[in-house]
Amino acid sequence: MSEYTGRTLSSDVGRRINFSSYSIYFLAIGLFLFLTFATNTFFSFENLYSISLDISIQFYAIVGFTLLLIMGEIDMSVGSVFGFSGALAGYLFVKSGLPFWIAFLLTVLLCAGVGLINGLVVVKFHVSSMMVTIGMMTVMAGFKAVLIGQLSSRVFTGDFRSFMRMKLGDIHWTIIALVILIVVFEILLLRSYKFKVFYFVGQNSETAKIYGIKSDRIRMMMFVMSAVTAGIGGVIAASRVAHAAATAGVGLEFTMITAAVLGGASLFGGKGSILRSAVGLFFLAMVTNGMVSFSVDPYIQQVVLGLILIIAVTVDIVFTRKSRA
């Protein structure tokens, strides 16, 4: 039925990817227990708190990234938008002398525009989101470098620096926000029709369209969402290090993909959740943390991460095949 206009999938490779919904919980709990008993350093408040703080920053980026994956689309530009937004907010703050909150707001708005361009091109011209966002990744990496060049390693002070350091009680607000966001998103995605519809659109956008859902608009919105959350995460990260780092966000897209896929998202859409992606991030952080305490060569960590990703996906595919045969 070639006359239908829906996007066709180029190949059936990977169609079966569906890291079973609960595996990530078992993996994470297993690793948690292992590290608790195998090391002296892991299970301490300070250590767990610092892991949580690390995650709470990347987490913002993975919110939109996961929502977009549910649409069956991918945002390769998430890392450079992350880095760009930190630099831009810093530029507006330091060079243009804007109050921090205005700089923050403008930055997020601009990121929304970036996401909108991604979304418009992908949805209107029916092209691969991976390709478009690789283009955007390159563009934003360029802008980031330009801004960093302008900033010449100026330190962000005042409101910018204290933004990330704000605490509620004794806890950084980012951690509290992380917990709240996870709970809220989990409930909304499971129960609220406004959110559940994302899964329907992701599974089959044409079907959703037939039943009156504005699929294209939702798909575009998620591109915006991805850029916006990456932008927010980027500003928080810049606030943490208090300057615009050239390395900010570099390779973040790979971390996001790994965490989200471990958390059960599929590149073909219709699957995934914010909670499970966050647990995926936590798992990755624990792996790094654990290996540091075993004083494993940092480069072996990469090997191990790659191995985990591939084994997890392979096991899942073999498992799904068996259950279908």
């Binding site: 169609r15 590149l267 073999v318």
Partner: peptide
């Protein structure tokens, strides 16, 4: 195995 090339080759 049938892993999506994006994921497989990132892992590698």
């Amino acid at each position: 195995v049938g892993i999506n090339p994006l994921i497989a080759t990132i892992g590698i």
